[in-house]
Amino acid sequence: MNIFRLFGDLSHLAAIAILLLKIWKTRSCAGVSGKTQLLFAVCFITRYIDLFLHFVSLYNTEKVMKLIYISASVFTCYLIFFKFKATYDGNHDSMRAEFLIVPAAGLACLINTKFDAIEILWTFSIYLEAVAILPQLFLISKTGEAETITSHYLFAQGSYRALYILNWIYRYHYESHVDTIAIVAGVVQTILYCDFFYLYITKVVKGQKIVLPA
């Protein structure tokens, strides 16, 4: 474990907590893409499937973190699609999730480190995570604005994988550990946030709201 990975996981936890707080406090999921949250839930379940296959004692933080990720993302989906369904902006959350799931699944069958069920699921989860934020970015481009709290969520969510890139550089240099699939997907994932990062740093940090040119 290195500082980059630690802060990456903390940033990820922060993103999940910020979104939950936003929805719970405002009792509304306006401006939040339900599809992105569904895709993240699928990512966690397919990536941590080993938790279900053979029960492991919760002695170490890694197992606990995985359970937190899975339960928090499922709970977020529950809030969006059930509890606060009336505030879900389905009209603007219109990116076809199938266009992300099918290519990720196909690619996972073609490019993977080992052709076995667990490995294919893990690879699918990595590829899907790289593009899972697209419906959320698409929704913001459709509505033309993002609530400040949602911008903080996106900044924490984008920073998590950016910090993981630093973690991979660190591990390559000090542990000569390389996980090519995770690295390539992580770079793609972080690149997708670039224009948002620019808007966040030039606007939100100065207290302005993100409003996209219509």
């Binding site: 080993d50 296959l53 053979h54 890694e62 995985k66 080992k114 667990i118 993981y164 996980d179």
Partner: peptide
């Protein structure tokens, strides 16, 4: 089912 030790990250 041996978990792939290669993926030791979240």
């Amino acid at each position: 089912m041996i978990r792939n030790k290669q993926h030791d990250e979240l």
